[in-house]
Design a protein around this nucleic acid. Sequence first.
DNA 1: TAGTGGTCTAGACCACCCT
DNA 2: GGGTGGTCTAGACCACTAA
Lengths: 255, 255
Amino acid sequence: MGTTQLESVQEPKYWHLKTVLSEALDSDFAVGEILPNERELAARFGVARATLRQALEQLELEGRLQRRRGVGTTVAPPRVGVAVSTAQRDWSGGGAVEAWQPVDCTTAVAPSSVTSVLDVEADEPVHIVRRIRVTHGQTVAAELLYVPSSSVPELSAIEAPSGPARARGVLRELHRLGLDGQDRSVELGSARADDAKELDRLPGAPVLVVTTRYLAAGGTAALSVATYRADTCRLTFGDSGDLEISHHDQERRAS
Amino acid sequence: MGTTQLESVQEPKYWHLKTVLSEALDSDFAVGEILPNERELAARFGVARATLRQALEQLELEGRLQRRRGVGTTVAPPRVGVAVSTAQRDWSGGGAVEAWQPVDCTTAVAPSSVTSVLDVEADEPVHIVRRIRVTHGQTVAAELLYVPSSSVPELSAIEAPSGPARARGVLRELHRLGLDGQDRSVELGSARADDAKELDRLPGAPVLVVTTRYLAAGGTAALSVATYRADTCRLTFGDSGDLEISHHDQERRAS
DNA sequence: TAGTGGTCTAGACCACCCT
DNA sequence: GGGTGGTCTAGACCACTAA
């Protein structure tokens, strides 16, 4: 029997649906426009709502759509480029348009995975600074910055023991310390409940976790774990400006 | 009427399930071990299979699990750190343990998003080199490297017009050109069908898309779009070695 | 051929936002 | 209160893998 294969080898419905929707987004919708609701879209395409949702989830993951409970599904703007490598050493975070804003600061025992990197005892409390990063009026990242007491020896105990004021104090001392360099890694994660709240997303939302180790005087001065909204952010590295290419356009290349 | 709120504010089942499973993975399972199948797990936890799958999907996204159709669900090893910033300029890709392997090379018209970055006419064909990156015996990334003819003027037309040999020729010429620097960006995407095949994943699998612009002589010499497996990879930047911290451990910190 | 994960359905109810 | 997306169910069938 001949094995002449049909052209299409059983492409899943949701995958095909995603392609169709993607093209429709390009041609028929403007950024910010509201799509028909899920029940109507499902009916229009003749699929179950769950199947349609699978396609929408993919498009949201790729930054093409934005869905908000109680509101609707809208066409997302292109991802914003967020610089990661440079200008991070300015601990003050003041003045710049894109800045980290200190939210809180506590002193507590860090997870063992953190203490081992920081070269401190597992049960030794460290300063934990909470910051958020705001770009174009939107919170794009939430960070936990772990700072051993030894890195900020001159931090006055008289200052506010917690809160934003304390956070600024720790950052100021860290700034005075100076830095020799930094190590960074990026991986995919899902937002914890507290991060999700800051980022205005549901828990479990996909995030890019940027882990940075700040080096000073031959040791690790601080460790930062920053979670960026994966749906709206494109992390940029290097000296030059923005790279204006979107993965989405990539997908339409000839194969 | 009193509004005394219950302690637990309606945590979704799949979220709680994910937590329970995550803890079980830490205590009761070894890396590589096979979990009970989905139908049994669902029954054991008293939920529908779809609900269980939602939890498993999250855990897979976080790199804790690996699922393969027809085989089963296994406990994933920790993510491998993959260096991105350095050693990339060695176009030869030979000798190193972690190396890019040329797979193919064609000459075709690139998408407009690519040509605009490369400063070439929209209808001008460019060299498109296909490479894969193999680490520890596993393919962790698939790349498309776009090279304008003007960047490799001395490429002999006599050489193989396509295939791996051609790819090596283009890379060799690019190496001779030298580089002034590079711009990079990282964002979340989903694997196209061809990338998915190289990465041994299903289409739509989450990937980290690394877009690199190589600069030479004041212009853009080449553009690389590399898709890394988001489930198994942690991208590392900077000079020093590995950062041994996992986001997963982060999640258990006191809040 | 048996067993796995992947896809799909047609419902239901809930949490949330807006008016 | 009415409409939205988010969660959940209990099934069914399919594609793939390995024995």
